[in-house]
Nucleic acid binder design. Structure first.
Length: 782
DNA sequence: CTTAACGTTCTG
DNA sequence: CAGAACGTTAAG
């Protein structure tokens, strides 16, 4: 595929009729109405109105990138202009009905603007049925009892009462106007498979699709869903076989046992919190069911804040006043600040997950938002991402997907680790269900790893017996449809807008200091508070390291979360990330202005995925971890180290893509001297090299790395050759040539003797003092 | 009218 | 099936 692509590109300029004819014989039929005529599958009714840009969303406001596939096709960028597609970065997040669209019944346009009343707006706005394509005002429908199902994913889109009533739902879930599907190269959007089981949904809820509306702060649902995750109750990793059963329950029943854990936790909360919570309770008379959990959610936030108040030493506000500020924030901000649906894409308001739980009765044709099982919820989350400028998708990344992003350094304590393990398992669950549906065999069960696999921890005696790296996920795992937004264009506000139009006294930077003390999952909670917090908490300073390792299912949502946070370090080890996903990611972690990815960990991924590095340039990458990548051998290493294949003509970069790598981890790979030769030629800055468990590495390899004239000879400071059984005592002699070497790890090298190590130390002692840190682990004595 | 690009079909 | 192509629509 890549080949044919590049072939195409070479011919781009020579746009000629013959070529076109050669490539694609002109259709014999005359001017068909290809864009209009409906496929036979399309059911009934009117010709569909083509949707058009909202012109307000972030994507619409962006300029063409000039680099994507479609830009390169454009005439203005020197392309042939055949594809006629919008720039990938500009694909509208919420395509709207054309201005000329009118109601089928009354022949009038949307009238929602004429009303202030939120609740009635819905009935006056044009709604397009994704099944029959009819565009009507819900108000104009005479159907009294039937209810339409609002499609969260697209403004003004629903399954009209007629179709819904006729049981036609499901087939055309995608709805019109959704070009963001798998047919877009570079798009991560996937067609969503209809969810079969519709496990009940006791509550038929009226959704408010009104994009103009401003969902009020209703943390209940988010928090409600999030809380279980927050509970750091110790839960040991269940056996994979158990997972299915157990997690099925989690999804079937919102009130799962983890929630209970949460409850336990809060009992220990501080008195001022309960007092405060009492106050909140008064504010919320509705939502009986969620009230409790809502409180718990807030309470948890306060607990976090309270627990950490000891860390605020460097802050002026770190006193009681501040505490009060912090607390009051939770009351004030949400109301005013999260009045947010009309961020940059008013048309594309959030799918208002908040609010969807709220019963609103009385309006005539009721639109119902079916509550579905995880798939549906996920989809809702996705649609939020689609429709909201500043949205909460990021927490979904952590909560909806139950796959928290975590910070390595912060994960010191066991409890947190267990917590995350648990969270990850929850994440697995989703894919469990999906894979089960699709293949009959849960993917995770087929690819279950011991929780800790490290070169030395994993099966020392038989390093060749490595764990099978995850395969590409089954399609179904990637089905979510999702538009990924780069970070917002406008800078986030410096102060929190309050309900009364004023702003909060504390400045962003001060908040940032507070946020800096929170763990990633806590930040995710904060992101649900309001729009402003959402943006603040997404600040890349808070997310320099993102660790998604061992998340068995990498979802588009997670990818978007990563992009939004622009981490410097990204760990995707032992994930099932696909080539397309990785490639997409790399291209969106810009290699410029200091905001690029410096550390990329892909150990245990498939070569298919890792090969994404071949076609992209990541000149600023400092650390590359490709340990235990199945299928990564010499030939693949050559591809990795050769110049990128995906450069635009004229911008060809002939330098090695990984020329700035200083830390290269190749443990467990079947590479030979061929690769090492390349490495020593192409990576002049290489300082740390991990070749442990590489069975083909021998003394000659070491000789290569340390030979006269190679840059590695002087740049290498650390080398790991542990469990390289072909390496012998002789290698130690080669290391004497290395000017900067500080650590040589030869542990478990059968052919390396302790005597030789001691001799090495003795001989080196004249110039550089070394010592044996452990048997066969030589370290420079500092 | 021109330009952008949607939503479909065609193709490998 | 993904990607390319293109007729046609929407907007200005």
């Amino acid at each position: 595929m890549a080949l044919s692509l590049s072939g195409d590109e070479e011919e781009y300029d020579s746009e000629s009729e013959q070529q076109r004819v050669a490539n694609r014989p002109k259709p014999k039929i005359g001017p068909t109405t290809s864009a209009v005529k409906m496929p036979s599958s399309r059911s009934s009714s009117g010709a569909r109105r083509r949707r058009t840009r909202c012109r307000k969303c972030e994507a619409c406001l962006r300029n063409e990138c000039g680099e994507c596939h479609f830009c390169r096709d454009m005439k203005k960028f020197g392309g042939p202009g055949r594809m006629k597609q919008s720039c990938i970065m500009r694909q509208c997040i919420a395509p709207v009905l054309p201005h000329t669209a009118v109601c089928l019944v009354c022949k009038e346009a949307g009238k929602e603007d004429t009303l202030g009343e939120e609740d009635d707006k819905f009935n006056l706005m044009l709604m397009e049925c994704s099944i029959c394509n009819e565009i009507v005002h819900p108000n104009c429908l005479k159907v009294s009892d039937a209810s339409g199902v609002v499609n969260d994913e697209l403004p003004n889109c629903w399954e009209c009462p007629k179709c819904n009533h006729a049981g036609k739902s499901g087939k055309q879930k995608r709805g019109p106007g959704f070009k963001y599907a798998s047919n877009l190269p570079g798009s991560l959007l996937r067609e969503q498979k209809p969810v079969k089981e519709e496990a009940d949904v006791s509550s038929a809820i009226k959704r408010r699709p009104d994009r103009e509306e401003t969902p009020r702060f209703r943390p209940e649902e988010p928090l409600h869903r999030q809380l279980p995750l927050l509970s750091p109750c110790s839960l040991s990793r269940p056996r994979p076989e158990d997972k299915l059963r157990k997690k099925r329950k989690l999804f079937d029943d919102d009130e799962d046992e983890e929630d209970v854990g949460m409850r336990k936790k809060e009992r220990s909360d501080e008195p001022y919190l309960s007092k405060f919570l009492h106050q909140i309770k008064k504010e919320e008379e509705e939502d009986g069911r969620y009230e409790d959990e809502n409180d718990r959610g807030r309470e948890h936030l306060f607990r976090i804040a309270a627990e950490r108040k000891g860390h605020f030493g460097d802050m002026e506000q770190c006193n009681d006043d501040f505490k009060n500020e912090l607390l009051s924030q939770f009351i004030k901000t949400p109301v005013g600040d999260s009045d947010q649906s009309h961020c940059s894409s008013p048309q594309a308001g959030p799918s208002s997950e908040a609010g969807s739980e709220t019963q609103e009765k009385g309006s005539r044709p009721k639109a119902r938002h079916k509550r579905r099982l995880p798939h549906r919820e996920l989809s809702r989350e996705l649609s939020k991402a689609l429709n909201q400028d500043i949205q909460k998708s990021d927490d979904c990344l952590d909560t909806e997907n139950r796959q928290p992003i975590k910070v390595e350094p912060e994960m010191e304590n066991e409890e947190s680790k267990r917590f995350f393990r648990k969270a990850i398992e929850l994440g697995d669950q989703r894919s469990h269900l999906k894979s089960k549906e699709m293949n009959g065999t849960p993917w995770e069960l087929r690819h279950f790893y011991p929780s800790q696999i490290t070169p030395l921890g994993f099966n020392r005696s038989t390093p060749t017996n490595r764990p099978a790296p995850p395969q590409s996920p089954p399609k179904c795992i990637q089905m979510e449809r999702h538009v990924i937004r780069p970070p917002p264009i406008s800078p986030p506000p410096d102060r929190l807008p309050l309900k009364d139009g004023r702003t909060h006294v504390i400045q962003r930077e001060v908040w940032m200091k507070i946020f800096g003390h929170l763990a990633h999952q806590e930040l995710c909670v904060c992101m649900r508070i309001c729009k402003t917090w959402n943006r603040w908490c997404c600040d890349k300073r808070l997310w320099t390291t993102i660790d998604l390792s061992r998340c068995t299912s990498v979802t588009p949502l997670m990818l978007s979360g990563i992009i939004r946070r622009q981490p410097l370090s990204l760990d995707l080890s032992w994930t099932n990330i696909s080539k397309k996903q990785l490639s997409w990611l790399i291209n969106r972690l810009p290699g410029m202005e200091g905001s690029s990815l410096r550390v990329l960990k892909l150990s245990g991924c498939s070569w298919a995925a890792v090969s994404a590095l071949c076609s992209s340039s990541c000149p600023l990458l400092r650390t590359l971890d490709v340990q235990w990548v199945e299928g990564l051998k010499d030939a693949q290493m050559r591809d990795l180290l050769s110049p990128p294949t995906d450069n635009r003509p004229g911008q060809l970069d002939n330098r090695c893509k990984l020329r700035n790598v200083q830390d290269l981890r190749l443990a467990g790979l079947d590479i030979t001297d061929t690769s090492l030769r390349l490495i020593s030629q192409q990576m002049p800055l290489l300082s740390s090299l991990d070749l442990s468990y590489c069975n083909h590495i021998n003394d000659q390899s070491v000789n290569l790395l340390t030979a006269a004239g190679t840059t590695t000879r002087d740049s290498l400071t650390e080398i790991n050759l542990s469990v390289c059984n072909r390496v012998t005592d002789h290698s130690l002699n080669f290391f004497k040539r290395c000017g900067s070497i500080c650590q040589i790890d030869l542990r478990f090298c059968k052919q390396v003797t302790k005597t030789a190590c001691e001799r090495f130390i003795a001989e080196m002692s004249v110039s550089v003092p070394f010592r044996l840190q452990e048997e066969k682990l030589l370290q420079k004595a500092s």
